[in-house]
Amino acid sequence: MAFKSRNYPPEHGILVPIEHQGGVIRRLLATTAMRLADADYLTERLLANDARSLYSHGSKQLRHYLENLRDGNVNPEPDVRIVSNFGAAASVDGDGGLGYMACRVGMAQVLKATHEFGMGACTTSNHFHIGSAGAWTRMAVEQGFVGMAMSAHRNRPDPNQPVSHLPNSSPISIGFPAGSQPPFILDMGGAMLPYREDLIREMPNSYFKALGISTAIQVFSGVLAGINRERLKPPQTKWTSNQGAFLCAWDVKRFMDFEEYTAEMDHFIEGARQMQPFPGFDRAELPGGMEWQWERENRERGIPLGDENCEELEVLAAEVGVECGYDQFEVTRF
């Protein structure tokens, strides 16, 4: 059973080797003015999400990025700078580029501080979309750290709208490493409930909690990151640099023995996976568990690309003179 609110492998499509899909993404990005190293980095991030079946933040983002890069809304060659750095805390300016470039610098700073101080935190601003928030927490988890990442876009409260409209899709991700079990990777948007007056009256506490969580996300990665500064808004800037992020990590070893922690975490996760699944599902998984399994399978057999996704990429590729070469994989059709 597939819920419309999240990513799933497609029911119909073809299997594309991961190296081939990476080549398609890289050739499409080569049609922009991005630096080669930045295009390579973005290819890695989008390809990793395709491999996890997180298509919404994988290759499906390419049209959005290419159009904004080509139209001059996003700086293709940003001069990303650390503008503040004190102890375990830092702040990064993305110079109007894609948020990936700012978060690459910011997360490197966070991990460096975490190795040195046991924790690190960084805000980023003056940039466009950061991609999947879970991509940044996974970097911490891979080093045995707990990671947290949030992102927000410029969003001023409208006095003509009900406060229940304030929660939006600004994401939060929290990641915990594990041992032999899948790591826990929460990656979700802050808007969790539909605006329906009957539901608000029926379960107001749920709406109060959703308002609180989304507001915290927007304050951490928006207000605290400084995305509302006048210099970052048109006409003072020509870039669509309307987003910010908050990145942080904690070293598990500063709290308890790492082997003891992973043993306890594995015991907890394994126990949860042995519980009864949600109705309509064939197994119980904690956040990140399904993506962990899909990535392992897809890196071996190929990425399952649905017919709609393939068509979208082929149309985009034709517009910029790039070949996708998906026809050769029709023999893998499912």
Rank of each mutant, 00 (worst) to 15 (best):
F334T: 00
L286E: 09
N49A: 07
R27A: 15
A89T: 02
R273L: 06
V146F: 11
V24H: 11
R333H: 01
T43H: 08
G306W: 06
R156D: 11
G226C: 10
V163K: 03
G97M: 01
A90I: 06
S5R: 09
D251G: 13
A90L: 02
R70F: 11
L47D: 01
M265Y: 09
G280F: 06
E300I: 14
M119P: 08
R138E: 13
W136K: 10
V92I: 02
G144W: 15
A102Q: 02
Y41E: 10
E116K: 13
N155R: 02
F329V: 04
F3V: 10
E291K: 03
A37I: 14
M34W: 15
P194D: 14
G131S: 14
P204I: 01
D257H: 07
R154N: 09
K209T: 00
V219F: 01
I14Q: 12
P234V: 07
N155K: 08
K112T: 06
V74H: 00
T137M: 12
Y8Q: 09
Y100S: 00
Y8G: 06
A318P: 11
E197V: 07
I14W: 14
L69T: 07
T240F: 03
R231C: 08
A249R: 07
G306Y: 02
L28I: 12
L46V: 03
V24F: 08
A113M: 08
G118I: 07
L166W: 01
E44V: 06
P9F: 15
V331S: 06
I18A: 06
I18W: 10
D266A: 09
L166T: 00
T123P: 09
